[in-house]
């Protein structure tokens, strides 16, 4: 099909407009579309793709539960609602906290796979509890700095250093 404007190139953009119940169609090439100021998205940004994946989990009632979406991670304050918008998680703890809601998305993104079977750290990694504890200490440190409570901030920093040893 030829472009209806330049009548030269192939029409690759097909627009359907319905105004007052009257339907009209237009078939144009990319160049004419650009000249007409019609934006064409050739690539879907990853966060939009993730949002659509996360939003389209049929039958997953828990995910559509507003409370679940509003649950905030105690270590980073992140919610699933924010994940929908941003496409990235707030902290490593979110994987465990939102495991149930994230599972369908992870399955889709990784062709049905949900468990790691690749490289393992060459030495024993920090256990999950210790990782969460460090995250929590850093969260409190941020708050202390914001409140200008430098005494508490110094104590928390010492604790973090101790925990990281």
């Amino acid at each position: 099909m030829r472009c209806q404007i330049c009548n030269n190139k192939d029409a690759t953009i097909h627009l359907t407009e319905i105004t007052d119940g009257v339907r009209s169609e237009m078939h144009i090439c990319e160049q004419c579309a650009a000249e007409q100021g019609i934006a064409v998205k050739s690539h879907i940004p990853i966060n939009e793709l993730l949002s659509s994946l996360l939003a389209a989990q049929p039958g997953d009632d828990e995910l559509s539960d507003p409370d679940e979406l509003q649950t905030a991670c105690p270590t980073c304050g992140f919610t699933l609602e924010q994940f929908r918008k941003e496409g990235v998680l707030g902290c490593p703890n979110d994987y465990e906290l939102f495991a149930k809601s994230l599972q369908p998305l992870i399955e889709k993104a990784h062709c049905g796979k949900i468990t790691h079977c690749g490289k393992l750290p060459s030495r024993t990694p920090l256990d999950t509890r210790k990782q969460a504890e460090l995250l929590s200490l850093r969260q409190r440190l941020d708050a202390a700095v914001q409140n200008e409570d430098y005494e508490l901030a110094a104590q928390l920093r010492d604790k973090i250093t101790e925990n990281e040893k």
């Binding site: 993730l50 490593p92 994987y95 992870i106 990784h110 796979k113 468990t115 490289k119 750290p121």
Partner: peptide, 22 residues
Amino acid sequence: DYAFSPRFGYLTACPTNVGTGI
């Protein structure tokens, strides 16, 4: 120490990279 979980592997900001992160 890297953020790692035995279940999900190397933990990444976006779940599309989680696991091996490769």
